[in-house]
Design a protein around this nucleic acid. Structure first.
Ligand SMILES: [Zn+2]
Ligand SMILES: [Zn+2]
Ligand SMILES: [Zn+2]
Ligand SMILES: [Zn+2]
Lengths: 160, 160
DNA sequence: CATCTGATGCGACTGAGTCGCATTAAGTCA
DNA sequence: TGACTTAATGCGACTCAGTCGCATCAGATG
């Protein structure tokens, strides 16, 4: 169990209850798995992990729960630059906006944050009049390690 | 034909030639369609438009060409906040980075740019040591118009 | 023009995600 | 606590975007 789970689970459960959403065993389990995972999970991985705990859980339930959590803005959906196919990944939404950098060589995903991002968000809102609900920044490139080796290793995608 | 096409097509063709890529009739046509379109196209729309010009073009060719252009960084792939399903959309990559705002109520897509975004990009690079190859910022929310009506219109997604 | 080779068309195939419906179980209240 | 109501789950058939291997076609080159 990561630090995140202990902090967020009560909040999530409260949110679900507040919306008049039924707190089923499956939903609790799925939320727990997402929160406790140190990786960013895609639907298939989530289903796989869930089946370890309850082999009868059905993929439809996983998709429906992801949709629900997305609609409630309890999780964010990520592409991670489509590093491994067209999958989408999910993570619990935290108050402080962070974003993701994906290395096209080694596949590493790095989370980062900087005040400039928060500033940019405010600025966009002011300049365009949009009330911002979701904001997603993703970066693809070459991480410090891979760049340092200035190697000729095979590339995966997006490299000009 | 939009302003973009006249400016970029020669460049695109040059780039393709430079890479030792064969300039087939199909590739030329697909590049033209993407450039001339005022909308952001997804694979299916691109195929539909292409078939109007050459009814024999096959969907596999469209997918392969999109992959090629993506790999060469000649086009960027967008999600547009999955406003209409899980489709991906494509646009010619221009030098100046812009990003997209999607309104969850009316579905409008707005393109925007601000120096802070360029600044952020430089900052990320410096702070993380990443050599940035692709950077994608997408915003979902409520546009000025829809917000002004503070209406109870049906919502599409992501609204808490 | 002839040759070489990468690209296209094709159609079968895959597999993620969806849908309608019968069954189950969460929440509620007497 | 034990019905009762109704949302949620499990199920399996289904869809349909995207992939793949292979035969054929057509750029590029000299
Ligand atoms: Zn790396
Ligand atoms: Zn993250
Ligand atoms: Zn996506
Ligand atoms: Zn709008």
């Amino acid at each position: 169990m990561t630090k995140a789970s202990a902090l967020h689970r009560p909040h999530l459960v409260k949110r679900l209850a507040a919306e008049g959403i039924r707190l089923t065993a499956q939903r609790k389990m799925l939320v727990e798995i997402i929160q406790d995972s140190s990786d960013h999970l895609d639907a298939a991985s989530l289903l796989r992990l869930a089946k370890k705990r309850d082999s009868h859980i059905h993929r439809a339930t996983v998709y429906r729960t992801l949709d629900l959590l997305k609609r409630l803005s309890l999780i964010d959906e990520l592409d991670l630059m489509h590093l491994e196919g067209e999958k989408h990944f999910y993570e619990v939404r935290t108050k402080s906006e962070h974003f993701h950098l994906a290395c096209f060589r080694c596949g590493k995903i790095v989370e980062h944050k900087t005040p400039t991002f928060e500033l940019l968000k405010k600025e966009i809102s002011k300049q365009t009049g949009f009330r911002i609900n979701v904001i997603r920044l993703e970066v693809g490139g070459e991480c410090r390690n891979c760049g340092a080796q200035s190697s000729n290793l095979p590339r995966k995608v997006g490299v000009p």
